[in-house]
Design a protein around this nucleic acid. Sequence first.
DNA 1: GCGTCAGTTGCAAAGATTCTCAACTGGAAT
DNA 2: ATTCCAGTTGAGAATCTTTGCAACTGACGC
Lengths: 140, 140
Amino acid sequence: MNQKPDYEKELRKAGVRITRPRRIIIDILTSTEDHPDAMKIFHRAIEIDDSISLSTVYRTMNLLEEMGAIHRHAFNGGPSRFEQARGEHHDHLIDIDTGAVIEFQSGKIEKLQEEIARSLGYDIVHHRLELYGRKTDRSS
Amino acid sequence: MNQKPDYEKELRKAGVRITRPRRIIIDILTSTEDHPDAMKIFHRAIEIDDSISLSTVYRTMNLLEEMGAIHRHAFNGGPSRFEQARGEHHDHLIDIDTGAVIEFQSGKIEKLQEEIARSLGYDIVHHRLELYGRKTDRSS
DNA sequence: GCGTCAGTTGCAAAGATTCTCAACTGGAAT
DNA sequence: ATTCCAGTTGAGAATCTTTGCAACTGACGC
């Protein structure tokens, strides 16, 4: 139900090695529906291979984030939580009151970003757009 | 040369107290041109009042960020760095290779964001748009 | 298959950030 | 000016994340 992009191919293309810890961590990310934090990923990982270290989880998260394969969210000071960037790129609207994450996408915005970067002499490698909002109040 | 918004008035309006530590920290932020991290702000603060704690610096950063008075940047795993949100709102293009921060603004993008949030039933409180890019390669 | 070497890992330690809680303090009301 | 109390603070503990380094291991060429 959930498309699993071929991260291994992408990783190899990016010049990084496919190691056992990375394979396990990627499997965990591609097969979950929630937004686990590093510690949660670590616990799930050591059930499969108890030699994996928390450092490696963090390092892999940073690696995948830079590649644009996952997104990182931080709610009110808590630890970062991660989510697979499956399929189309999307951005996030975070509910300030509940921490809920709503995904959306806008080709128009993406296009504008490209234009802006180009005019400044840059190529966009990745980007982060987060809207922090509150449910429109219709009562009171 | 650098407009200093009346944060005290804004703070009071938001229902938070104007305390001595906060006044000092805000002064530091409004009178610097760089993007200091929490430790740097802390060191500058204790020169003025050596009773200020690092906790308070962090707490004040979070407070001001939520109010939209400052922006937070995080480069390749390093500590967060802060910047006064002076005048017009602007977004950031971060040079992946050097960590340089280029500011820009786009009314079009802002407007699109509003539209998207409204269509999802939200009012935007604040937002973060960061483009991570690399200088367009004209040689090679 | 075997050797090689740069990329990767685990561990421990350091660094960054948040949290707990008792003591303190703005500022509103009097 | 004095009182009062919710918001704030400092100190240190706890939590989260990155880093240094020696040992290990993919991937490539032979």
